[in-house]
Design a protein around this nucleic acid. Sequence first.
DNA 1: CTCATCTGAAAAATCGATTGGGCATGACAT
DNA 2: ATGTCATGCCCAATCGATTTTTCAGATGAG
Lengths: 339, 339
Amino acid sequence: MAKVSIKDVAAHAGVSVTTVSHVLNDAPGKRITDSTRDRVRRSAAELGYAPSSVARNLRLQRSQMLALISDEIATTPYAGRMILGAQEAASKAGWLLMLVNTGSDSEFEAAEIRALRQRQVDGFLYATMYHREVALPDAVGEVPTVLLDARSSDIAVPSVVPDEVAGGRTATEELIRHGHSRIGFVNNVDDIPATHGRLQGYKQALKAAGLTFEQRLVVTGRSDTEGGLQAARKLLSTTVRPTAVFCFNDRMAMGAYHAAAELGLRIPQDLSVVGFDNQELIADGVRPGLTTVALPHYEMGAWAVDALIARIEGREPDGAEHAALHCPLVVRKSVDRPS
Amino acid sequence: MAKVSIKDVAAHAGVSVTTVSHVLNDAPGKRITDSTRDRVRRSAAELGYAPSSVARNLRLQRSQMLALISDEIATTPYAGRMILGAQEAASKAGWLLMLVNTGSDSEFEAAEIRALRQRQVDGFLYATMYHREVALPDAVGEVPTVLLDARSSDIAVPSVVPDEVAGGRTATEELIRHGHSRIGFVNNVDDIPATHGRLQGYKQALKAAGLTFEQRLVVTGRSDTEGGLQAARKLLSTTVRPTAVFCFNDRMAMGAYHAAAELGLRIPQDLSVVGFDNQELIADGVRPGLTTVALPHYEMGAWAVDALIARIEGREPDGAEHAALHCPLVVRKSVDRPS
DNA sequence: CTCATCTGAAAAATCGATTGGGCATGACAT
DNA sequence: ATGTCATGCCCAATCGATTTTTCAGATGAG
């Protein structure tokens, strides 16, 4: 079963390659009798013919390939779901997805991008592994591009990010719903959209519930377990201890668990905790399981691919689209009513 | 800066496309004067010429593309480093890597593989996200393939896996080195190579240190936090409690931490723990940090790509190669001498 | 009966590269 | 003066498709 080309089909069906092409592509405006049509189709099937996309791409000057460029593929566990979402959306639409990771070396990045353009990649997904603002490298040039989990100052580039504000609101509401009224927020110190967005959502939820925002209930720290531990320690040692904590992410929530343990507080009886990110390894690993808000990585990947393909095929409302996708709550066992 | 083809370069340099091709590819056996060479090269540089790989691939009947096919890209955090290793090795060798994930649907898998062959993918990396035995799908046909983190019953296919036995030995030795002589093993129940290999390594280390293997020091459970908790609970409640535990993986080690906490045992003062996998999220997240054995995912990815390219280019000793890569110890704070 | 029109399909150009075979040109030998 | 040969480069075929153009034969109008 070596390679069977369009010529073989033509010979087998006793027609020209032209006709085969016309039949197989349902060429519009071409007149071909039904009997010929049938003969060609049967031959193609019989021979197991599959058109060479290399040849087709050369002729059509495109590749049906997308490249997902990202700064760091490895260091975060998020990557997987985002890539999966992109990959499945691409495959569903009949496109292929290349993965390229460039690290932080912008020299290397530019070189890779040029290499991809040389291979006629039709579009780029420019992804970051956490929601932040980026500058699109010049090298992408005129090739259609969509930002994934990132925003650009250049608003002409479509982008998709998580709805951080709504996510923060969701987390806080879950605590309010269980009857908490003194709710602490262990936030990240970094100046990134997630920090501000989740805080804003926290405030919105409080306000909507008629609770007053208190600055001293917000403590910040590095966004890892250690930072969460320290921040939570400080928060839980205040004179009027909160009965619940919303943590910037699951790693910090893990730190809050440690702090609670130090202080002899049981979760969720003495302290309710909500995290953010839904990192299964942590959220499922700690005891009790951590109620948290999930980032819609899969959905963002899929959205980005769909938007990119639409753009490439020119069926896009002009003007860039910017999506902020919903972050759903994942309920486990770390939230209860206040004692 | 539209598309500049070889013809443009030829025109600009005042030579034929043949000559341009010969110069740019350093065609062996072709005689071209230095002055012409220079002229062509300067023209190419000046015009920013980059050969179209689509055209080249059509002519040469290859694509310089590799595809990494895997069952599940998303569900394990390992994927990242493995993919990164593959990706960087490919890029270093001037190849492109496609990612394809097929889920468990072998129908869909076959379809994807056919699509890839149609695009002239030159080789496949068939990866699983944990070390196990697989059957290579028929659809790959004659295309060169290398197994990643998997073994096949068909020994003709090269493969690379972690050296589980040596890893188990390393973990156990670390405990022995600190003076432990009653070392428990919290093992996985699944019938996979890791289970048997790590146990074998555990036994080897004991034997080498002159310690006798005791069956009751080995307990098994599901390979997650809960399973680790239950197994460790059982192990630590025996009359003669071990002073150290080697856990099948970091998730089970996390369960062992929970069990120790229940029993009022401090780590590492009262109990030393060694894990396996080096899942940063866990190993760095628990307190104290977990000493563990790392799986060489990055290295396996790179090895597989190198082996695959070698095979494709025909510079490979005949007969398949099978590599078992070293699993290095990552020291944190969960091991101390017995009290 | 002749010429125009329509049909169905084939021929040929094209995409951008690689490559085996040739063809001038000048140097050298006879 | 003529034949031989190495040199330096170009022609044209090729890869496998798509697409524009062409064309032979059937049909119909005048």
